[in-house]
Design a protein around this nucleic acid. Structure first.
Lengths: 186, 186
DNA sequence: GCGTATATGTAGCGACTGCTACACGCGCTT
DNA sequence: AAGCGCGTGTAGCAGTCGCTACATATACGC
């Protein structure tokens, strides 16, 4: 006779991936406890039991998403180092154009909006993610670059501008802008 | 005896400025009908009477905000044309740093987030505003610029990247990036 | 004066919000 | 075996959501 379907223990750690999946699909704006709980296969009652409050849940979720983003950057890092700043730029632009990244991008702008409005935890998460990206960019800068730290910051600025324009449907503008800025890949 | 306090007629046009004031202060996320109505000195009942539905109200409000932004750009335009791209950049960065712009910037990122998630009307409003800014930038490009159209797009990309980094508290990163990108004002 | 269209107030609907009180079953210690 | 604490299910709270039914007040054409 089969074992009676052991239910695995529930914890923040086991819930966070499921919660992240839901907010990636539907955004923070629609993230109320009952839908979140349903997506995680539990009840609003249990979410509050484990996280204490919705605000704490969101804070934990933001931290988890930031860690997820950092992990994603690690695996996306190729072994070969690009030879020009424009190549670094092209690499990350291509990566962000990947349809698999789209839910993350949509969520990203919600995080930026929350940070701009001062919603607790959002600015910290946004800063963490941009810090990760900046660090990754510094490591990606070409060997002979005269100013890798400054160059990484410059590229970060350009990248995020291009991402924003793409998000609102002005990808063409961004592409033409990068071209005119001398940032077309070799 | 004094006239019995004529109440002026209510219309979309008279309501929109008051509604805009409220969303600028509190954001779209908190924009539910009753608070909006209170800010406009009326009732949710009347907002729906005049706009038809909340979705239509938001659409009208976005269009109004886009027009407001365009009008603001007109008046911000100085008569003197800058002599370098970096000066154009510095001018608009300074303008956006103005504390008076902060509510607008906070709202802007909400509009971007809505556009990225496909919320109806948000992408159109975002595109309209960026189109206005792009046109303004083209008119501001230095006299002898080799590629004013491309240069304006390049500057737009850089500007928005810098604005985003500032919004999340990484203004220093943006400043250092612009410096390294050769975009420090002369 | 009369009827009608427009504008507004009152009251409420059902659904959803974050959160909580209460009960219950299970595994642990003593 | 008794008691106790942890995890969980059920039910519900007060408040807010967008929206609507209904009554009414006012202004204008005839």
């Amino acid at each position: 006779m089969p074992a009676p379907a052991r239910k695995p223990p529930m914890s923040k750690e086991s819930l966070l991936p499921l919660l992240a999946r839901h907010v990636l699909a539907h955004g923070f704006g629609q993230a109320s406890l009952r839908p979140l709980a349903k997506a995680a296969g539990t009840s609003d009652r249990m979410l509050l039991y484990h996280f204490g409050s919705k605000e704490a849940l969101i804070a934990d979720l933001l931290a988890y998403l930031a860690a997820l983003y950092a992990a994603g950057l690690e695996t996306a890092l190729g072994d070969d180092r690009p030879s020009t700043r424009a190549d670094v730029l092209a690499r990350i632009i291509d990566q962000n154009r990947d349809p698999a990244m789209q839910p993350f991008m949509a969520l990203w702008w919600e995080i930026v909006a929350g940070a701009a409005r001062g919603t607790p935890g959002f600015a910290a998460a946004a800063q963490a993610m941009m810090g990760e990206l900046l660090g990754w960019l510094e490591g990606q800068m070409p060997e002979g670059d005269a100013d890798p730290a400054g160059g990484a910051r410059y590229l970060l600025t350009v990248i995020e501008g291009a991402m924003m324009l793409s998000a609102i449907g002005h990808a063409d503008t961004a592409r033409e802008g990068l071209l005119a800025g001398g940032l077309a890949p070799s």
